[in-house]
Design a protein around this nucleic acid. Structure first.
Lengths: 162, 162
DNA sequence: ATTATCGGCACTACTTGAGTGCGGATTGAT
DNA sequence: ATCAATCCGCACTCAAGTAGTGCCGATAAT
C-alpha cells in the first residue's frame, strides 16, 4: 500500500541513534531501552543492516553496533533496500532490480509499464539522494507542497478516504 | 513494501484505455478482453474509481465507463488515493490523513517522525503532479533528479507534467 | 566461570492482497 | 413483455507478507 514497514521505521530510529554516537559501539539494548521497540525485532533489523554492511557489529560483552560510514554518506535508499528490498512500485519491469525476473504477463502490451517504472525510479532516486543525516537532524519547517498545484489545480481535498 | 498494488496497476491500465476513447462509454468487458486482467477484479477497481468520481458509469445494455475529466486533469495521486488510500509511508504521524488516529506509540519521542512524513509528502506531491495523460503517452527519456540535490535541500525539481 | 552481547533457526498470529461467486438492478433491443 | 448486456453489492477463500516471539549457541570482557 505504498508504505514503509515497521522494520524500516525501527531501522531508521536505530541508525539515527547510532549516528548520534558516531564512533562508539552501541548495544542494541540501549536502543531498545530508549524507544518502544520490541528488543527481539530490533535485533532482527540490526542484523539485516549488518548483513548489508551499513553497520558493523562487535560481539561479546561490551559489544554492539556502530555505523560503518558517517550518516551523511548513508542514503535512505540503501537503508530501505537493506530492510525491505528496493521499492518496486509496480510488479512490471522490475526484473533488473531484485530477482531478475521479467514475468509480468501484462508486460508486453501493458500501456503503463514504462511510466510506472519511471515513477518507481523517481521515488527511488529521491531515497538515494536523501541521507540519514538529513533525517536525523531536526529540520526546517515543513513547506507543504500541496498548495502549489499542479496538473490543473484541482487536487481537490483528495487525500481523504471514507 | 513500498509498492503499488495490482488494483492500482489495473486501474491505470483501465483509465489509460478510457483516455484513448475519451468521450465514449466503454464497457468493462472491452478492457478485460484487451488485457490479461481478471474481469471480476477489473469491475471492482472500476467501481472504486467510480465511487471516487474519477469515472462515470452508465448502466444497462450499452453501458460502461467514461472518464469524468480529460486525462490531463487526472492526477496519479487521485487515482492511487481512490484505489488504495493516500500513501502513508510510515505509520507515524499520518493520523490526519486516514483514520484520524495519532496512536503511534513511538511518536512523541520518535526522532524520525517528521522526516518520514516529509518523504511521504514528497512522493505524494510527485503523484499529485503527474497526470494520467503523461502516463498514457509514450514518454520522454527519463531525467534523473539525482544530480540536483539532495540530502536536505529541497529537491523540488522535477515533477513534470505533460 | 560468569555475564552481556550478537547470531541463527523456526515458529505463531495477524493483516493485506489477489481473486472469485452469486444474485440483483438497470437499460436497450427485439 | 422478454431477453440480453451491463453495472452493483455483499461476502468469501486463498496466498503472501508483516509483526513479533522463543530458544539456544557463539563470543568476548571481567
Amino acid at each position: 500500500m505504498l508504505k514503509l514497514t515497521k522494520r524500516t521505521e525501527y531501522g531508521l530510529i536505530a541508525l539515527t541513534h547510532l549516528a548520534q554516537r558516531q564512533g562508539e559501539v552501541v548495544p542494541a539494548r540501549e536502543i531498545g531501552d530508549r524507544y518502544p521497540i520490541p528488543r527481539r525485532l530490533l535485533a532482527e533489523v540490526l542484523k539485516d543492516l549488518c548483513n548489508a554492511d551499513l553497520v558493523a557489529s562487535t560481539r561479546g560483552a561490551h559489544g554492539g553496533y556502530a555505523l560503518v560510514r558517517p550518516a551523511q554518506e548513508l542514503s535512505l535508499g540503501e537503508i530501505v533496500s537493506a530492510l525491505e528490498g528496493a521499492p518496486t512500485v509496480s510488479s512490471c519491469g522490475d526484473g533488473d532490480l531484485l530477482h531478475g525476473e521479467h514475468s509480468c504477463d501484462v508486460q508486453s502490451i501493458c500501456p503503463i509499464r514504462s511510466p510506472l517504472v519511471e515513477i518507481k525510479d523517481k521515488i527511488w532516486q529521491m531515497m538515494l539522494t536523501t541521507s540519514l543525516a538529513s533525517l536525523a537532524q531536526p529540520h526546517k519547517p515543513y513547506r507543504p507542497l500541496a498548495s502549489q498545484t499542479q496538473v490543473n489545480g484541482s487536487v481537490k481535498s483528495s487525500i481523504e478516504s471514507p
